[in-house]
Amino acid sequence: ELKKVVALYDYMPMNANDLQLRKGDEYFILEESNLPWWRARDKNGQEGYIPSNYVTEAE
């Protein structure tokens, strides 16, 4: 089971490997080892790295 998180803030990608975050949207965490960058997937199936301090665990 993948960990689900909710974006606390918008995040615009800095490079091609990053994933855009939209405040309030849910994302699945694929990999937590790259702290403070986590690999995530959005609801459309896009994958990339996000800043872990921009998300919180979903209820």
Rank of each mutant, 00 (worst) to 15 (best):
residue 27 Y to K: 01
residue 47 E to S: 09
residue 8 L to K: 13
residue 34 N to M: 14
residue 31 E to W: 06
residue 15 N to A: 08
residue 6 V to F: 08
residue 18 D to S: 09
residue 44 N to K: 15
residue 32 E to T: 12
residue 34 N to A: 14
residue 58 A to T: 09
residue 50 I to H: 02
residue 33 S to E: 10
residue 38 W to V: 14
residue 32 E to D: 06
residue 11 Y to G: 01
residue 49 Y to S: 10
residue 59 E to P: 11
residue 50 I to N: 00
residue 15 N to T: 15
residue 10 D to Y: 02
residue 8 L to T: 11
residue 53 N to Y: 04
residue 12 M to L: 14
residue 59 E to T: 12
residue 49 Y to T: 11
residue 49 Y to G: 03
residue 15 N to I: 08
residue 18 D to R: 13
residue 21 L to G: 00
residue 53 N to S: 13
residue 58 A to S: 12
residue 50 I to M: 03
residue 19 L to E: 00
residue 38 W to T: 12
residue 43 K to C: 10
residue 28 F to K: 05
residue 14 M to W: 06
residue 36 P to W: 05
residue 27 Y to S: 01
residue 54 Y to P: 00
residue 11 Y to T: 04
residue 31 E to M: 14
residue 37 W to T: 15
residue 16 A to R: 09
residue 24 G to D: 07
residue 30 L to H: 05
residue 8 L to Q: 07
residue 50 I to F: 06
residue 58 A to W: 06
residue 38 W to S: 15
residue 22 R to F: 10
residue 38 W to L: 13
residue 18 D to M: 10
residue 2 L to S: 08
residue 34 N to L: 15
residue 27 Y to A: 03
residue 13 P to N: 03
residue 32 E to F: 04
residue 27 Y to I: 09
residue 51 P to T: 02
residue 44 N to E: 12
residue 34 N to W: 10
residue 24 G to E: 03
residue 45 G to L: 08
residue 39 R to Y: 04
residue 16 A to I: 04
residue 42 D to A: 14
residue 50 I to D: 00
residue 26 E to A: 08
residue 5 V to M: 05
residue 39 R to H: 06
residue 24 G to S: 04
residue 30 L to Q: 05
residue 7 A to D: 00
residue 34 N to E: 15
residue 41 R to V: 05
residue 7 A to E: 01
residue 48 G to M: 00
residue 26 E to P: 10
residue 33 S to V: 09
residue 25 D to P: 00
residue 42 D to V: 00
residue 45 G to D: 09
residue 20 Q to G: 13
residue 31 E to K: 11
residue 52 S to N: 11
residue 39 R to C: 04
residue 26 E to G: 04
residue 20 Q to R: 12
residue 1 E to F: 07
residue 21 L to N: 01
residue 21 L to T: 02
residue 7 A to G: 02
residue 22 R to K: 15
residue 56 T to P: 01
residue 42 D to L: 01
residue 18 D to T: 10
residue 23 K to T: 06
residue 47 E to D: 12
residue 43 K to R: 10
residue 47 E to C: 07
residue 23 K to L: 04
residue 25 D to F: 06
residue 58 A to F: 12
residue 24 G to V: 00
residue 53 N to C: 05
residue 50 I to C: 06
residue 15 N to G: 15
residue 15 N to H: 09
residue 43 K to V: 13
residue 10 D to G: 05
residue 38 W to A: 12
residue 50 I to R: 00
residue 23 K to C: 10
residue 50 I to G: 00
residue 24 G to I: 01
residue 3 K to D: 04
residue 52 S to R: 12
residue 19 L to A: 01
residue 53 N to L: 07
residue 55 V to M: 03
residue 19 L to Y: 02
residue 27 Y to V: 11
residue 6 V to L: 09
residue 17 N to M: 12
residue 38 W to N: 07
residue 47 E to L: 05
residue 25 D to V: 11
residue 15 N to D: 11
residue 29 I to R: 02
residue 56 T to D: 14
residue 2 L to W: 07
residue 26 E to M: 13
residue 56 T to F: 05
residue 48 G to D: 01
residue 46 Q to T: 09
residue 27 Y to E: 02
residue 23 K to I: 04
residue 6 V to G: 02
residue 41 R to S: 06
residue 11 Y to L: 07
residue 56 T to V: 14
residue 50 I to W: 00
residue 1 E to N: 12
residue 59 E to N: 12
residue 57 E to A: 11
residue 47 E to R: 03
residue 54 Y to I: 04
residue 6 V to M: 07
residue 3 K to R: 08
residue 9 Y to P: 02
residue 22 R to N: 12
residue 20 Q to T: 10
residue 4 K to N: 03
residue 20 Q to Y: 10
residue 21 L to E: 01
residue 3 K to Y: 04
residue 41 R to L: 08
residue 18 D to E: 15
residue 51 P to Q: 06
residue 37 W to Y: 11
residue 52 S to T: 09
residue 34 N to H: 08
residue 18 D to A: 12
residue 9 Y to E: 13
residue 58 A to E: 15
residue 55 V to R: 00
residue 18 D to N: 13
residue 14 M to V: 14
residue 28 F to C: 07
residue 40 A to Y: 01
residue 29 I to D: 01
residue 46 Q to E: 13
residue 22 R to A: 10
residue 35 L to S: 10
residue 40 A to R: 01
residue 30 L to V: 12
residue 54 Y to S: 14
residue 42 D to P: 00
residue 8 L to N: 06
residue 33 S to P: 13
residue 39 R to L: 09
residue 19 L to W: 01
residue 43 K to D: 07
residue 5 V to N: 01
residue 22 R to L: 13
residue 15 N to W: 05
residue 35 L to C: 07
residue 20 Q to H: 08
residue 20 Q to L: 09
residue 53 N to D: 10
residue 16 A to C: 09
residue 38 W to F: 10
residue 48 G to T: 00
residue 13 P to I: 04
residue 16 A to N: 10
residue 3 K to A: 04
residue 4 K to C: 04
residue 18 D to K: 09
residue 41 R to E: 03
residue 33 S to I: 08
residue 15 N to Y: 04
residue 26 E to N: 07
residue 1 E to I: 06
residue 59 E to K: 13
residue 8 L to E: 07
residue 49 Y to M: 14
residue 28 F to E: 13
residue 30 L to I: 11
residue 44 N to T: 14
residue 6 V to E: 05
residue 57 E to V: 14
residue 55 V to P: 00
residue 50 I to L: 10
residue 33 S to C: 10
residue 44 N to L: 11
residue 5 V to T: 03
residue 23 K to A: 11
residue 13 P to L: 01
residue 55 V to F: 03
residue 24 G to Y: 04
residue 22 R to H: 08
residue 19 L to N: 01
residue 29 I to S: 02
residue 18 D to V: 09
residue 29 I to H: 00
residue 3 K to T: 06
residue 42 D to R: 02
residue 4 K to A: 05
residue 39 R to N: 07
residue 28 F to G: 09
residue 48 G to L: 00
residue 32 E to P: 13
residue 9 Y to S: 15
residue 7 A to P: 02
residue 45 G to A: 08
residue 22 R to Y: 13
residue 33 S to D: 07
residue 56 T to W: 10
residue 19 L to R: 01
residue 54 Y to M: 15
residue 28 F to Q: 08
residue 24 G to F: 05
residue 43 K to A: 14
residue 54 Y to R: 08
residue 2 L to Y: 10
residue 13 P to E: 03
residue 16 A to W: 06
residue 27 Y to N: 02
residue 4 K to I: 10
residue 5 V to G: 02
residue 11 Y to P: 01
residue 6 V to A: 04
residue 46 Q to A: 14
residue 50 I to P: 00
residue 57 E to C: 09
residue 5 V to K: 03
residue 30 L to C: 04
residue 43 K to P: 07
residue 4 K to W: 03
residue 29 I to P: 02
residue 30 L to S: 04
residue 19 L to S: 01
residue 5 V to A: 05
residue 7 A to Y: 00
residue 18 D to L: 08
residue 38 W to E: 07
residue 59 E to A: 11
residue 32 E to G: 10
residue 1 E to M: 11
residue 8 L to G: 03
residue 6 V to Q: 11
residue 59 E to F: 08
residue 32 E to H: 06
residue 10 D to F: 01
residue 12 M to E: 14
residue 55 V to K: 01
residue 13 P to K: 06
residue 47 E to F: 03
residue 29 I to Q: 02
residue 21 L to H: 01
residue 12 M to Y: 12
residue 52 S to F: 06
residue 15 N to V: 15
residue 51 P to S: 04
residue 32 E to V: 14
residue 59 E to W: 07
residue 56 T to E: 14
residue 29 I to W: 00
residue 16 A to G: 12
residue 48 G to C: 01
residue 1 E to S: 04
residue 46 Q to W: 05
residue 35 L to H: 13
residue 42 D to Q: 02
residue 9 Y to A: 15
residue 44 N to Q: 12
residue 58 A to L: 06
residue 33 S to T: 13
residue 22 R to C: 13
residue 42 D to F: 01
residue 35 L to F: 14
residue 1 E to L: 08
residue 43 K to N: 12
residue 15 N to C: 12
residue 37 W to E: 14
residue 40 A to H: 02
residue 28 F to N: 08
residue 56 T to A: 15
residue 48 G to V: 00
residue 59 E to S: 15
residue 36 P to S: 12
residue 26 E to Y: 07
residue 14 M to Q: 15
residue 23 K to M: 05
residue 8 L to Y: 03
residue 13 P to D: 02
residue 42 D to M: 02
residue 28 F to M: 14
residue 30 L to A: 06
residue 49 Y to N: 14
residue 20 Q to W: 06
residue 23 K to N: 05
residue 30 L to K: 08
residue 52 S to M: 14
residue 16 A to D: 15
residue 29 I to L: 12
residue 4 K to T: 10
residue 49 Y to I: 13
residue 29 I to C: 05
residue 22 R to D: 05
residue 42 D to W: 01
residue 12 M to R: 13
residue 28 F to A: 09
residue 14 M to A: 15
residue 30 L to W: 05
residue 59 E to M: 05
residue 36 P to M: 11
residue 18 D to H: 15
residue 27 Y to Q: 00
residue 2 L to E: 06
residue 9 Y to L: 15
residue 55 V to G: 01
residue 57 E to R: 08
residue 34 N to P: 14
residue 55 V to Q: 00
residue 28 F to L: 13
residue 39 R to W: 10
residue 42 D to E: 04
residue 10 D to N: 07
residue 15 N to K: 12
residue 41 R to P: 00
residue 35 L to I: 13
residue 47 E to K: 06
residue 6 V to S: 04
residue 14 M to I: 09
residue 49 Y to L: 13
residue 52 S to P: 13
residue 22 R to I: 11
residue 1 E to Q: 06
residue 52 S to I: 09
residue 29 I to M: 04
residue 30 L to D: 02
residue 47 E to V: 09
residue 6 V to P: 01
residue 3 K to P: 03
residue 52 S to H: 05
